[in-house]
């Protein structure tokens, strides 16, 4: 049989690839294999080298130590040191409180300060409405505070307190005369409707000198208490308008200067006056006189 390796007489060599080179080339032209070679092999090599390096305990410790050192070095740089705390917008008492509750001894690194925790602590103080905390240039911990402003005195069974517009108790007051500029509120639930009370107080106008305070009645509506034991009973809805009506009546007919006990505005279509007992007797007497005069 003839050898199968081709025609020996022809001068050109056989261009056919060997079976294995053919297979190898086909393998190299397979997209999955090519991607594996291009991405998988370098990745695998890097991973293996890294894992081998880290497999030694002492090397791991050295790396950890180096990282810790670097971190400490950065933390202790003067650029990051906070030396003092500045408090803006707080009264002396509140700022003393703040200094007391911030649990850091200055100087301290700014990385060690938990600003959010400080802010929450400061905002948790009763006299503080909102607080913002930041680190200012030059290593100053700046605490900006907006204090709660007392708007009224609230008298309840325990005593007399200053409250702000949201009804938060600020502090106890020894006696009413210590804060003559603040109106006095009383009654159950008065601290929950301070805005309404303040609106009524603002609307009192010419009655302000005579105003003794506001009483929450039945956790529902307000009474305005004036001197000489007079009361204005305001309705549950639209109390300001009712008070303005009373003031208008009073201006026109000098109503509140007379001997009244109460002006009942609870029913808007039927304002009612309650006179004192003396006044009623006087009125009867006067009427009888006039009747007699008419009759004579």
């Amino acid at each position: 049989m003839q050898p199968m390796s081709g025609d020996k007489r022809s001068s050109r060599p056989d261009p056919a690839p060997s079976r294995w080179s053919y297979r190898f080339q086909r393998l190299m032209l397979t997209p999955v294999f090519r991607n594996l070679l291009r991405l998988g092999v370098p990745f695998g090599l890097c991973l293996a080298a890294g894992l081998f390096y880290l497999s030694d305990d002492t090397r791991r410790d050295a790396i950890r130590l180096a990282i810790t050192d670097l971190r400490t070095e950065i933390y202790s740089r003067p650029e990051f040191t906070v030396r003092l705390m500045a408090i803006d917008g707080a009264s002396d008492k509140v700022s003393d409180d703040i200094r007391e509750i911030v649990p850091y001894d200055f100087p301290v690194s700014s990385f060690d300060l938990d600003l959010e925790a400080i802010r929450q602590d400061v905002a948790g103080l009763s006299g503080v409405k909102t607080a913002s905390v930041r680190i200012r240039d030059g290593g100053v911990l700046q605490v900006d505070v907006v204090e709660r402003q007392p708007v009224a005195l609230w008298r309840n069974a325990e005593g007399l307190y200053r409250v702000d517009i949201e009804g938060v108790v600020l502090d106890e007051v020894a006696h009413r005369g210590a804060h003559p500029e603040l109106p006095v509120l009383a009654g159950t639930g008065a601290d929950l409707h301070l805005q309404e009370a303040m609106d009524i107080y603002a609307a009192s106008g010419p009655l302000t000198p005579r105003l003794r305070g506001l009483v929450r009645v039945g956790e529902r509506r307000w009474d305005v208490v004036l001197d000489r034991g007079q009361r204005i009973l305001l309705p549950e809805y639209a109390p300001v308008q009712a008070l303005e009506r009373v003031i208008a009546l009073s201006d026109a007919q000098d109503m509140l200067a007379r001997d009244l006990v109460a002006v009942d505005m609870r029913l808007a279509e039927r304002p009612t006056l309650r006179m004192s007992g003396d006044a009623v007797e006087n009125w009867w007497t006067i009427r009888n006189i006039s009747v007699e005069n008419d009759g004579s």
Partner: peptide, 21 residues
């Protein structure tokens, strides 16, 4: 065997030009 080698030559060259298997 000869034909197989010839087919292999042609297919390999065409694959190489196409750049895909």
């Amino acid at each position: 065997a000869e034909t197989e080698r010839a087919i292999r030559t042609a297919v390999q060259a065409a694959q190489k030009m196409a750049g895909i298997r």
